[in-house]
C-alpha cells in the first residue's frame, strides 16, 4: 500500500522584533498545530526566532519564471525612479 502524503507547509521566521518574517524552509505535518511544533524543532534549535508562521505550501501562488521578463523588465528602464537620476548642485550637500 502506498502511503498517504502528509501535507507540506512553508515556514517563515522572525529572527527578532523589528525584522520581518523570512522564509526558512518547509516541513511536513498533518495539521497547522503540528506544523508549528515541527517548525520550532527543525528551524529554531539555536534561538533563530521569536515568531513562526506556517503556511500551507499549496496556498502560495508563485510567479512563473518563464514570464520573468514580462513581469519585471518594465521597471528596468525607468531610471527616473531613482534619486541618482536628478542632478543637484554640490553646494546643496546631501539630499
Amino acid at each position: 500500500m502506498s502511503e498517504q502524503h502528509t501535507p507540506l507547509w512553508e515556514v517563515f521566521i522572525r529572527s527578532r522584533n523589528g525584522m520581518s518574517h523570512r522564509h526558512a524552509g518547509s516541513i511536513h505535518a498533518a495539521d497547522a498545530e503540528m506544523a508549528l511544533q515541527a517548525a520550532r524543532d527543525v528551524y529554531t534549535r539555536r534561538g533563530e526566532g521569536l515568531s513562526i508562521w506556517v503556511v500551507p505550501s499549496a496556498a502560495i501562488i508563485a510567479s512563473d519564471p518563464s514570464e520573468k521578463d514580462m513581469m519585471f523588465e518594465p521597471t528596468g528602464d525607468k531610471i527616473y525612479r531613482h534619486p541618482t537620476f536628478y542632478e543637484i548642485p554640490e553646494e546643496v550637500g546631501n539630499m
Binding site: 498517504q4 505535518a29 498533518a30 503540528m34
Partner: peptide
C-alpha cells in the same frame, strides 16, 4: 510510526 502518521491525518481531517 505508521499508526501515528495515520492517526494525525485522520484527526486533521476530522477537525
Amino acid at each position: 510510526g505508521a499508526w501515528v502518521r495515520e492517526a494525525a491525518l485522520a484527526y486533521a481531517r476530522k477537525e
